Simulated assay, not measured.
Amino acid sequence: MAMAAGTAEGEPMMDVNTTPLIDVMLVLLIMFIITIPIQTHAVKLDLPQDSNDSTPPPINPVKNKIVITPTGQTLWNGAPLDLVTLRQYLDQTQTMSPIPELHLQPDPQAKYALVDEVLAVTKRAKVEKMGFVGNEAYSNF
Score class of each variant (00 low, 15 high):
68 I>F: 07
4 A>E: 05
58 P>I: 12
71 T>Q: 13
73 Q>C: 05
49 Q>G: 14
17 N>Y: 03
81 L>W: 00
66 I>Q: 01
137 A>V: 09
105 Q>C: 15
17 N>L: 06
11 E>L: 14
139 S>C: 00
101 E>G: 01
141 F>A: 04
36 I>D: 01
45 L>I: 12
71 T>R: 12
136 E>I: 15
61 P>M: 14
70 P>G: 01
72 G>N: 07
63 K>F: 12
95 T>A: 06
56 P>K: 07
58 P>V: 15
107 D>F: 03
1 M>V: 11
28 L>Q: 12
113 A>G: 05
39 Q>A: 12
45 L>D: 03
20 P>E: 03
75 L>W: 08
28 L>K: 07
58 P>E: 08
8 A>Q: 13
62 V>K: 13
70 P>T: 04
14 M>F: 06
15 D>G: 12
61 P>I: 13
42 A>L: 05
130 M>N: 02
89 Y>Q: 11
141 F>K: 11
77 N>R: 06
122 T>W: 03
91 D>P: 01
105 Q>P: 03
84 V>Y: 06
84 V>C: 04
3 M>N: 13
63 K>E: 14
111 K>P: 00
10 G>N: 10
132 F>I: 15
38 I>Q: 10
28 L>Y: 10
12 P>T: 05
10 G>S: 13
31 M>E: 06
107 D>N: 13
11 E>H: 15
80 P>L: 05
121 V>R: 02
68 I>M: 12
66 I>N: 01
116 D>Q: 10
119 L>K: 03
131 G>E: 14
38 I>N: 11
49 Q>D: 15
44 K>D: 12
32 F>M: 12
81 L>R: 02
7 T>R: 09
